[in-house]
Amino acid sequence: MRVNFTVNGREQRADDVWEGESLLYVLRERLGLPGSKNACEQGECGSCTVRLDGVPVCSCLVAAGQVEGREVLTVEGLAEYAGNRAAGGGASVPGAATGEAGAGAARPGTAPHPGGSGELSPVQQAFIDAGAVQCGFCTPGLLVAADELLERVPSPSDADIREALSGNLCRCTGYEKILDAVRLAAARQEETV
């Protein structure tokens, strides 16, 4: 089947989708957006968290056909989305363009990348600064969930953070640095308001 939907503000079309495919599979394997991760595919880890019409969901549990005509935000669009929000641009990403389904080959990404890019969202930058990233496999899902928390609750308590992130497993960090990162992002967000 064919599925048309919007990802990170851009119209996308996927063809020849098997009806049993998940949104996660379509994002990763058909649209060249592997940022959302495939850790459990049973809704028990949160690594595939995306926002579907603004709501954080496990993309592994959304059938591809269910996203027809809907809007999806993934980690790849998070910086732009947060930037627009900070600029008062609301929830959707402007500048929609038509993307081609089927991106090029992913390449091993271990090459170093200079840090401190000015284009990251506050939550993304805070995760780097606080040491909340180790293997990084849980990171995209956590970022989407944490960013949505800070959108709803600008100054969350520790208990609020823990509850909001209780659907996102991390096996590397013991979560302490993740808590630090969300606190840091909230504090920075407050400074700029």
Binding site: S22, Q42, G43, C60, L61, V62, A63, G65, Q66
Partner: peptide, 26 residues
């Protein structure tokens, strides 16, 4: 029927179920 997908999709992802039709209620 599939709405939230939180049961049905687990069964599909883990190859426990291959329904002939999925009926999306979203």
């Amino acid at each position: 029927p599939i709405a939230g997908g939180t049961d049905v999709m687990v069964e599909i992802n883990f190859d426990h179920r291959r329904p002939e039709y999925l009926l999306d209620l979203n």
